[in-house]
Design a protein around this nucleic acid. Sequence first.
DNA 1: TTGTAGGCGTTATCAA
DNA 2: TTGATAACGCCTACAA
Lengths: 343, 343
Amino acid sequence: MGTMTIRDIAKKCKVGVSTVSRAMNNHPDINPETKEMILKVIEESGYIPNKSARNLKITESDTVAILVKGIGNPFFSGMIDVIQKKAQQHSYACILQPVEPFENELDKALEMVQEKKLKGIVFLGGNFRHHREKLQKLHVPFVVSTAGRAEDFGVPMAAAVSVDDFAESHKLVDYLCRQGHRRIATLTSADTDLSVGKLRFEGYLKALRDHGIQPDENLIFKLRGDSDHFSITSGYELTKRALAQHRDFTALFAVADTLAVGACRALYEAGIRVGRDCAVAGYDGLEIGQYYSPSITTIRQPVEEIAKETADILFDMILDGKEPESRTFQGELVVRESTEPAE
Amino acid sequence: MGTMTIRDIAKKCKVGVSTVSRAMNNHPDINPETKEMILKVIEESGYIPNKSARNLKITESDTVAILVKGIGNPFFSGMIDVIQKKAQQHSYACILQPVEPFENELDKALEMVQEKKLKGIVFLGGNFRHHREKLQKLHVPFVVSTAGRAEDFGVPMAAAVSVDDFAESHKLVDYLCRQGHRRIATLTSADTDLSVGKLRFEGYLKALRDHGIQPDENLIFKLRGDSDHFSITSGYELTKRALAQHRDFTALFAVADTLAVGACRALYEAGIRVGRDCAVAGYDGLEIGQYYSPSITTIRQPVEEIAKETADILFDMILDGKEPESRTFQGELVVRESTEPAE
DNA sequence: TTGTAGGCGTTATCAA
DNA sequence: TTGATAACGCCTACAA
């Protein structure tokens, strides 16, 4: 099945291959009429240029990529849109590339830089721990967004945009304490999680201690393994288990809104009124938290701004050769119905 | 910045390039010791084979791709996992490729077949209307899942797996009618939507008519344009608007669970008790519907099965040269708290 | 078991 | 403004 090549088109048009190439790539020095004619023939014959051959040959290309670990995470959807739009404004192509949980995002990035001649990269998700040595092989500007701190990279061309999960989580639990809660349970990730879950959990511990409360092992509920992620069902089942042990707590802090939703339902089914009998708080600022009944107290991350800043920093580096810059955003404590003051 | 090539490795190892190639591609006829040595050097030097050059040269590759329009749609997340797992079982690589809303999935597919030498494709999302002529250029087996009916393709190697959105939607609204509802409002997509939204809306109309109910323009609420998708917020605001017009309905059918969630909240805020004062039903079977309070009646699509069947059909075509086969799955009417019988 | 050489389809260089 | 031709980095006969 002989696929058509640029040669076939050249023959059909009775021109050289380079002229065809020029027509396709919007080169300046080509007769407009010739170009039009060629483009028409291409259109009619359904010729598809071979990208591999093209990528092999080109030396540069105005494109950036977003490498997302955990696409499907609703938190990222909004960010991606914003970044893509920004890229478009700069007339850059933007490739959205999912990264599997087991894949190494840095390896993937290295490959893509070579293959697609990327000018820059945004890393979304994952926890981005990599050896400095290897990181230095990435010769294009990149921004790690929502997945780590710049300090941990120690490499030029590296920038990070993030929310301080530790501090924000602390803020939230601190709020619960101030509301008078002393027995605050938590739903958190397994010990194997080194990502945001861990940071948020540590913020929880710190806040308790700051209020003179000794964290109680019996009030800490961890997801099992990496298999169950931050799903609503996980939160529901974990809370069911917690309640089955007749544990008494007046507040529950879930390290993700999805978990909090599941928790609310479990409490509801147990006849416990969320808000009045037991406070519940989540983290992320997902849409659902606002519309759940009761609406759920959470830490809202300024998604739009984070994404904008991510893109801006990246393009400042690419276009103006600016130094990598890092920013930490404040989350916003959004108090809602699920944490009515305890009496 | 001279990137390393297979030649550099060959030199370092004092062997020919073909030997290096053999080592990398698990070829049989190579001395195990030589191979090990080469692999070690590659590892140490951080050499990354150029994928473009490779793709340009190879004539075939055991890989399939999933082209997803609207990744981020939680409904697809589960399906993707299943399909990827199936591919793995067959020792096939599986590329997950997002397709932008404005992109033509068929063009993308054509490109990728050429570039990556795909053996098969799964199309997810979108509405997949394409000219037969162009469709015939796609010379590999493909399955259109959840985005159209095989009858509409009229091309060999084309299979479709889907749920009959029209019939299922009809089933749901029929149920509402049997519960005694006569004034059933609906939240549906804009007229520009030719995808599932349209089918579900038509199922709604048909069900009403079958019960001798004349659809009432005043009870039909459409999203504005394509800009607001099936988000919770859209459902919330649309319902707010509906209520502002003092329209009386005893039941509300939203063509997506997300819309239904937003509707529930809007009703709640208006002091209308969902279930008792007004029934609400959605469509999709999203996780949230089960955990919302009240839990939401819906049509659950058998995600797992759909995905399994999709993969099975595809690999039957690829591996056994089977004819394209199409299947329509039954959705399941899941009655929950949001549709208590009207008194 | 290994090495050499030719070609995959494109773009870039250079001469016309 | 055009056309011929040499790379791009790899795989794969084929020869050794």
